[in-house]
């Protein structure tokens, strides 16, 4: 059984990690016993009734209806509520059930916290918790994109053309049209050929759909790139080298800016011309182009770091605000942890 989880992780390391996660669990348990506790998700059930009306064209349309409407259909949805809203409802009517703890969402919150910590644990080295989380995300991602592809593309674009009546009755009642479209058999055939790649014979059969995908994508991208990335970018670079303001006066900074952009684009493009040796004037232009490229890469690096740090901050916010309830920037909870700690100390003394 130990083979099931041991890969490159040594047993001693495994014990260390289990110990660390136990320490975290104890700390969380202590925190859970303080004040209002930790991570809970509240919901309120919203009940809406819908009644149907038939318009002049004979089409049935559903809209929200008042209570007691004959033939109305009721739909219930659980919507998120904050801890503050729960507290307000409790103080107004103790023991009320309108706003309540959602156990499935609360379990989800704790699971999300575990996954977050497990991924962070990789910073200290590979470990079973990280590998478990990694395995989960691989399976979930593959399943997620398959489901999205099925409901977003295969059903409305393929099945709806092949069996419109069935799709209309099953899941797309608002589907326009409704006749069998034999043209849809072509992508179906190509799709089946593509899926045959999973079989030993599929390597040869799968060439045609692959050729179609590559040819179509090449054509699509050629048009869009030439239009937006060549024509539009060149047009945007055709700037006046001597610029004037709205009042007709010479605009020095705008002129310098425009000259710098034109020179920068031309010099950087010169660097990308590899069919001419980078010597003399071309070499000097390419050198200036490299400077512009370095500044571009530097700013891209800066933005990448900032983006990652913003994500990191968001994860810490999740851990400290949503899960541990350690901080309360929105004032949703009755007592902050600091206030709870003070009251605990006061009680003890």
């Amino acid at each position: 059984m130990s083979d099931a989880i041991t890969d490159q992780t040594a047993p001693a390391q495994g014990r260390w990690w289990i110990g660390l996660f136990l320490v975290i669990a104890v700390l969380v348990a202590i925190r859970a016993g303080m004040g209002e506790g930790v991570g809970r998700v509240y919901v309120q059930t919203e009940t809406t009734r819908y009644a149907s009306t038939t318009n002049e064209q004979g089409r049935v349309a559903w809209s929200a209806a008042a209570d007691g409407t004959a033939g109305a259909v009721t739909i219930e949805r659980d919507l998120f509520r904050t801890a503050g809203q729960f507290r307000a409802a409790e103080s107004a009517a103790p023991g009320q059930q309108a706003i309540r703890v959602s156990w499935d969402r609360t379990i989800g919150l704790w699971l999300a916290a575990f996954f977050t910590l497990a991924v962070f644990s990789f910073l200290a080295g590979d470990n079973p918790a990280y590998k478990f989380t990694e395995s989960i995300v691989i399976g979930v991602s593959a399943g997620y994109w398959m489901v999205v592809a099925f409901w977003e593309t295969l059903v409305p674009k393929l099945l709806a053309n092949l069996a419109p009546d069935m799709v209309k009755a099953w899941c797309m009642p608002n589907l326009e049209g409704g006749a069998f479209n034999p043209i849809a058999l072509i992508p179906l055939g190509l799709g089946i050929m593509l899926l045959s790649q999973l079989t030993p014979l599929g390597r040869h059969v799968g060439r045609w759909p692959l050729a179609f995908v590559i040819g179509t994508f090449a054509g699509l991208k050629m048009v869009s790139h030439v239009e937006s990335d060549i024509i539009e970018q060149v047009r945007a670079t055709m700037l006046p080298m001597v610029a004037f303001g709205d009042d007709g006066s010479f605009a020095a900074w705008a002129s310098i800016r425009n000259v710098l952009i034109i020179v920068g684009v031309l010099c950087t493009l010169a660097y990308f011309v590899f069919s001419v040796e980078h010597k003399g004037a071309v070499g000097r232009a390419a050198r200036v182009g490299v400077w512009f490229l370095m500044i571009t890469f530097g700013s891209a690096f800066g933005f990448t770091v900032m983006g990652r740090i913003a994500l990191l901050a968001a994860r810490f916010e999740f851990l400290f605000i949503d899960w541990l309830w350690l901080i309360d920037p929105k004032g949703e909870r009755g007592m902050t942890v600091v206030a709870t700690l003070v009251s605990c100390i006061v009680d003890m003394t």
Partner: peptide, 12 residues
């Protein structure tokens, strides 16, 4: 058709 094949690629 391209979108359908791209969706099929996810299934693949």
């Amino acid at each position: 058709w391209f979108n359908i094949l791209a969706a099929m690629a996810f299934v693949l």
